[in-house]
Amino acid sequence: MSTPLNYRHLYYFWVVAKEGGMARAAERLDMAVQTVSAQVRALEQSLGYALFKPAGRGIALTDAGVAAMTQADQIFQIGEQLPAAVRDAATGQGLRLAVGMSDGLPKLVVKHLLQPVLHDPRVRLLCHEDEFDRLLADLALHKLDAVLSDRPAPPNPNLRLYGHALGEASMAWFAPADVARKCKLPFPACLGELPLLLPTHHAAVRARLDQWFERQGLRPRIAGEFEDSALLAAFGRSGMGAFPASRWSHEELLQDRRMRLLGDTPEVLEHFHLISAERRIHHPLVQQLLSSARGAPASPAK
């Protein structure tokens, strides 16, 4: 039988790695350097491998130390979430759902994707927007329950992430009424006349839009490119140009009487994915999101 892991030793190792040295770790822990060093050596002896190596005047992680740090990060990140989880369960404050949103994902689409759980009064929703790769790192460390994205989980055996398709929606083109009135040609030819606002190439749908322009024989006059979809729509609404948006944004955009629907591009699809850190989903709200997506049509009704 293997010797049980001493989590106190692991915690001291974790602090040393975080602080970058024994002395800084000892200061943070309010302990003697010799005591911290002894605790780390005890962990190395129990694991059978050196976790640190000399590096100049300091120390650095060995390959074994990097592997141990990856696991320790997960353990102590989860531990930091324990008080809030216990408090919420004990006080009946509800179900916490921490969702990461890829920065290229339209905000109105995010609202649509999360709608199946928003009606539950127990839900306490925490939304984090960031770059795709950073969100995946946070998901792997269990800082997030799920990530919503416009692309599937990349193949990476080290992260062990799993993708789940949530559906797809066709794109449509919108413009303020005064911009739309300048069109002398029918859709889609009018897009060759108007200034256009587009997502940058970090959004998966941009490549599909460029291919569609090429098939239509259009040379777009690009007035602006935006990483943030909400900012793109805001500049579009201000009159800067026509812009594409998911059909799931259709109703909300047209509630603004100044906006006009120029036309649909049903052949240009935006795909949506939920990425989890586990193959079998245990979080009840994440299960509900997936169940709702599987029970809904792939594309919204027009």
Rank of each mutant, 00 (worst) to 15 (best):
G100Y: 02
G100H: 05
M101H: 06
M101G: 07
S102K: 06
G104R: 13
G104K: 12
P106Q: 10
K107C: 00
L108V: 04
L108T: 14
V109N: 05
V109P: 03
K111D: 11
H112N: 10
L113S: 06
L113I: 11
L114W: 00
L114N: 03
P116I: 04
V117T: 05
V117N: 05
L118P: 00
H119V: 10
H119R: 14
D120Y: 03
D120P: 07
D120Q: 12
P121E: 06
P121K: 05
P121H: 07
R122W: 04
V123N: 04
V123P: 00
V123D: 02
L126W: 04
L126A: 09
L126M: 04
C127I: 12
C127T: 07
H128P: 10
H128M: 12
D130K: 12
E131S: 14
D133G: 07
D133R: 08
R134L: 12
D138T: 02
D138I: 00
D138S: 15
D138Q: 15
D138V: 02
L139W: 07
A140E: 10
L141C: 04
L141Y: 01
L141Q: 09
L141T: 03
L141S: 03
H142R: 15
K143Y: 07
K143D: 13
K143R: 15
L144Q: 01
V147Q: 02
L148E: 12
L148W: 12
L148H: 13
S149Q: 10
S149F: 05
R151P: 13
P152D: 03
A153V: 09
P154L: 06
P155D: 11
N156A: 13
P157C: 06
L161G: 11
Y162S: 04
G163V: 07
G163F: 04
G163R: 04
H164M: 00
A165P: 02
L166P: 05
L166F: 10
L166G: 04
G167A: 08
E168K: 12
E168N: 09
A169M: 13
M171H: 10
M171Q: 15
A172K: 04
A172T: 06
W173V: 14
F174V: 15
F174S: 13
P176N: 04
A177I: 02
A177Q: 08
A177H: 00
D178E: 14
V179K: 01
V179F: 01
A180C: 09
A180Y: 05
R181F: 03
K182D: 01
K184Y: 00
L185G: 08
